[in-house]
Design a protein around this nucleic acid. Structure first.
Lengths: 109, 109
DNA sequence: CCCTATCCCTAGATAATCTATACATAGAAC
DNA sequence: GTTCTATGTATAGATTATCTAGGGATAGGG
């Protein structure tokens, strides 16, 4: 595994956040994260689908097969109430971590 | 492994940054990071020493056995020029990642 | 008809963390 | 002088999350 395309431990949060706007299928989730991050964050399929399984198991999302507007079958994931709550928790913890790391990095010299 | 005590992938950077101020032994490095982060970041010994081995192997730090001011033998780690350069790279990449994640998290709603 | 983009998914490798353990000693408490 | 706590180094094994590298299907354009 070379350099990861994202910060380990943040993928679930990014997916939940993306789904907080609207239900999307996996492929579109990855595209959305890539686009919203100005191509800095890339979600590989081998990371994406296992992550979606985790979220399903935890009950943070539900899934439903539908047709896309381009007439392709796709599995749309939708945030649950528990998922929305979890997103809040993860964002909060993430911000705390970042603030702490920033304090360390801000030390002299 | 429960919830990690730090963001995975940031430990090497935190150690390098800590050593950029002054050479320290392992135990003091962990204490320093904990203290500088207001107890948010905890570096477990099982993470610390493997990380120091990695840094040694990469040539980013050197190690020397010395006595502490409390008259105990301890291994003091010192940042090398390559280590200082690496710290810059890691901080830069980290900031880019954080900025990207922040953009995703800032999306509506 | 082929080629690209769109879509889903899994297996195995890799890496970084944690838990748990082992060891050693200085100094304080008693 | 014994015991307790903090200081100090280190490794083994489990866990988890990521990546790489596949395998499959199909819509639409050339």
């Amino acid at each position: 595994m070379g350099k990861p395309d994202l910060l380990p431990g943040t993928l679930d949060m990014l997916i939940l956040k993306t789904l907080a706007r609207a239900p999307l299928h996996g492929y579109a989730i990855a595209q959305s994260i890539k686009r919203m991050s100005d191509d800095v964050l890339t979600v590989e399929e081998g990371s994406l689908y296992p992550a979606l399984q985790r979220l399903l198991i935890h009950g943070w999302v539900t899934a439903e097969w539908k047709m896309t507007d381009t007439r392709r079958r796709a599995r749309f994931y939708k945030l649950t109430a528990a998922g929305r709550k979890q997103l809040g928790v993860e964002v909060s913890e993430f911000n705390q971590m970042i603030a702490a790391i920033t304090r360390v990095l801000a030390e002299q010299p």
